[in-house]
Design a binder for these strands. Structure first.
Lengths: 350, 350
DNA sequence: CTGTTAGCGCCTTCAT
DNA sequence: ATGAAGGCGCTAACAG
């Protein structure tokens, strides 16, 4: 049996299909007794509107295409969650394409040609399905200019960006600065930093935040405390070993991700430094495991949910053509746990 | 300007729209020169078929609705990844609905009324969008009979089940048995188990696997070695403390999740037991953090990707109405790391 | 081998 | 306040 359509309920209620459409959408006034007949018929036949037909007619699907470079990478689920949060409130559906880049090409994204094909296919699929707009979620912040062509369909990038489109990023510099401020407030002044790879934008921005804090708080500046890591735990281990071998080791380390903190912990243990008593550590990312390490790691949490929420909010306004007040960049949040000691000379600021 | 449609390219190629449709879908033979004219027109006008219109006509969207109870819970991204894997190969699109249960109602799912409304809305949204079938991804294996009504639309559950529908589950009993076998092969015989909550199906099934191993390997059976935990790390800590205070403590513990292992580690350290030298541990779930703990934790990895893949594969066949050979239950895989010691009396089996 | 045409389910202008 | 009818873009008889 065919699914019941507007026509069936029109017949049942003894009205035209137009009238049914009117009561369905409240597009026009309908005399209350006719409306009731219609509603009754809808009820009785358990009628559900066909969104596909509606989309075809209106040339608008209320569907947002989401291209995720890899849903299994730690940042992505929370961004999607933020997208869903806004989507729920605004009757927007999510068509998800997962590029699965981590499985298909690994972690090296330097050559865009390796995945241009996947990205192009994703866009084609989404456009063919007439999504009203697209959100692109990267696995690592980087410039994707020219990767895809959405043929005029609105697109918003997050955790990545292009020179031509809107993108939602969090404030890396502020985050590093905030972490440093926290450390300073706890009485630290000799603070080392272990960066990520220096070809990464976040590494550079966070280093800016570090320098800013060093300058503003007038911390003793020592180039020996600045180490270039590569995001992996081994570099955390190696660089911390160097740091702790210094004549005057730092009292705290700011690590640009939580993974390297695992190496820091190991190096500290081997050198006989207890954390946080002999060495304080602040990580980045608030990865799930940072709460399970011993000690539990204090870290800068990424505003992932907020980024997703803001991305779709901006996209939604782009689609409707409404102007938005310039919005504020999502900020990281300090997750205070047990890896930072308060030094006795600490100046408790508000 | 309107998007270019089949009509435009028909005009350009001097053929009827039917012919265009035929070359587009290869539905019928078309003389090669006419085909070329059509292809050229398609190329020139950069024509992209409108999947919405096609769906309306064919009453088939090639879209699968995925209801995730919470995409931010650790098991979900990999299941979705498996769904995408199969979806990519079979030209199936994914309409994702995220119930966000973890944020909305927390971890207590005992009262289905708390989230029936969300689930019903999700189904309505999906049905309205004419998905060809539905996959429901739970956050914890449990009986969801009667939660939703898909009005005859095919549905497959995973990480949850109902009494009426197909569901994809992994083999819990086999997993626990395999973990035990591994421990036995490493020379352990006095093996404790810390279970999850006993109202949980996985807890009971894994306990079956434990008993099966105890019986088959003729291990000394000691009820004192069987502890009921609650999945949280504190219970791992507390129960391990009890275990290690025994006159004859176990040489190994099988923990039914990785979170409790964190507690086990802490208790062992406090009691002066080194892992794995004095106490071996096997966890469950292969949570990301299990690789970052010290020592790195040997654990049973869940076949999440495979579950997602199998779920959509089964659903796809359900939709097409084709019979499938009875498929094998996905199995967990031992992730061998550094938390298990090989005892000197170990009988190395193949 | 190709064209004509009737819808799929819905919205909306135009008429009454 | 309601109805008739055209058409969104596409597929698949049916006809030639």
């Amino acid at each position: 049996m065919r699914k019941t359509s507007i026509k069936d309920i029109a017949a049942k209620a003894n009205v035209s299909i137009a009238t049914v459409s009117y009561v369905l959408n409240g597009t026009r006034n309908v005399r209350s007794d006719t409306r009731e007949r219609v509603v009754a018929a809808i009820e009785e036949l358990n009628y559900k509107p066909n969104a596909i037909a509606k989309s075809l007619k209106l040339n608008r699907t209320n569907t947002i295409g989401v291209i995720a470079e890899d849903v299994t990478v730690f940042n992505t689920p929370d961004i999607i969650d933020g997208i869903n949060d806004f989507g729920d409130r605004n009757d927007l559906h999510i068509l998800l394409v997962n590029l699965r880049l981590d499985k298909r090409i690994g972690r090296n994204f330097s050559n865009t040609e390796d995945y241009r094909k996947y990205a192009a296919n994703a866009v084609a699929e989404l456009l063919s399905n007439q999504v009203d707009g697209i959100i692109y979620i990267g696995v690592h912040p980087r410039d994707l200019t020219g990767l895809i062509d959405t043929e005029g369909k609105p697109i918003v990038y997050t955790y990545s960006y292009t020179q031509d489109d809107i993108s939602i990023q969090y404030n890396d510099e502020q985050a590093a600065y905030q972490a440093m401020s926290y450390l300073v407030n706890q009485g630290h002044s000799r603070i080392a930093v272990i960066s990520g790879l220096m070809d990464s934008i976040p590494s550079r921005l966070r280093l800016n935040g570090y320098y800013k804090a060093v300058t503003e708080y007038q911390l003793p500046f020592d180039p020996l405390l600045i180490k270039m890591g590569d995001w992996e735990r081994e570099s955390g281990y190696r660089l911390t070993s160097e740091l702790l071998a210094l004549p005057e080791p730092p009292t705290a380390i700011l690590s640009m991700n939580d993974v390297m903190v695992v190496g820091i912990l190991q190096a500290a243990e081997e050198k006989g430094f207890k954390i946080p008593d002999d060495l304080s550590v602040v990580g980045f990312d608030n990865r799930e495991f940072s709460d399970y390490l011993r000690p539990r790691i204090t870290t800068m949490g990424l505003p992932l949910h907020e980024m997703g929420y803001q991305a779709i909010e901006v996209l939604f306004n782009l689609i409707k053509g409404t102007k938005m007040d310039s919005l504020t960049m999502p900020e990281c949040r300090l997750i205070e746990r047990d890896s930072v000691a308060t030094l006795k000379n600490a100046v408790r600021q508000k």
